[in-house]
């Protein structure tokens, strides 16, 4: 075993000296499973609001960027261990995440989360609410006094759960639920929207202050000339603009 690791390391060393090391590309990590923020289109490429936004930001900051997808669960550990440089995956700015990584300025307003259910008049305080495991919505439901949290691996399954009666309601990002509620006659919004998190920002390593500044400038310039608002209106209808 040792021998194998050693020979791999030697091969890797050889590769390291062979390439020039100048213009490094910035790798953008996303989940690719969170429409309309980011998803894979029919061609299998990253698409969505953040694809358009990320490409524009890179052009403005004059960076060469490349898209990679990573599982949501390990998206932060892989950032801090350097497998990509930026997280652009609909990640809300929260205190606990901010302890581990840095965030750029938000590029959306705090995103409203909403409840969906099969019928109106559900007492949300005392019902079974489905949410995707590991999201801010799941921790919100966990802290609601009378409600019971039912966690699923994917947001798809939370919608399936209210349809088959496992859960009374589902809590998720409003932008994600919007198209479902309009296209699916069974599902309707219930209750009031809740504001969780502090808007969505780019996740960047704490040691990468320079890169963060570059992106902040680019985001600011997009806010100034209104192009960010145009993108938000195009991809996230109904969301607040800047």
């Amino acid at each position: 075993m040792k021998k194998l690791i050693l020979s791999t390391a030697v091969a890797a060393l050889a590769a390291g000296t062979a390439f020039a090391q100048d213009d490094s590309t910035v790798r953008l990590g996303t989940e690719g499973a969170y429409p309309p923020y980011n998803f894979l289109n029919d061609a299998g490429e990253v698409d969505g609001f953040e694809r358009a936004l990320g490409d524009e930001l890179c052009t403005r900051a004059e960076l060469t960027c490349e898209w990679v997808t990573n599982d949501w669960d390990s998206i932060i550990p892989n950032l801090v261990s350097g497998n990509y440089d930026v997280i652009i995956a609909g990640m809300s700015i929260t205190d606990e995440r901010d302890e581990v990584i840095d965030f750029s300025d938000p590029y959306t307003q705090p995103d409203p989360s909403a409840y969906v259910a099969l019928s109106d008049g559900i007492d949300l305080e005392n019902s079974v609410i489905a949410a995707q495991a590991g999201t801010i919505q799941a921790s919100h439901v966990a802290s609601m006094e009378g409600a019971t949290l039912l966690e699923f691996a994917t947001p798809d399954e939370t919608i399936a759960a209210i349809k088959n009666g496992e859960a009374d309601a589902a809590l998720a990002d409003k932008a994600f639920l919007e198209p479902i509620a309009t296209s699916d006659a069974e599902v309707t919004f219930v209750g009031d929207d809740v504001l969780l998190g502090g808007g969505i920002g780019l996740g960047i390593r704490e040691s990468d202050a320079e890169l963060r500044e570059q992106f902040n400038e680019a985001i600011q310039s997009m806010k100034d000339d209104g192009s960010l608002n145009t993108l938000i209106e195009e991809w996230l209808p109904g969301s607040a603009t800047f």
């Binding site: 966990a142 019971t148 039912l150 966690e151």
Partner: peptide, 9 residues
Amino acid sequence: FAGFPAFQQ
């Protein structure tokens, strides 16, 4: 992990 939902954490 992959099969059934977790109830009340």
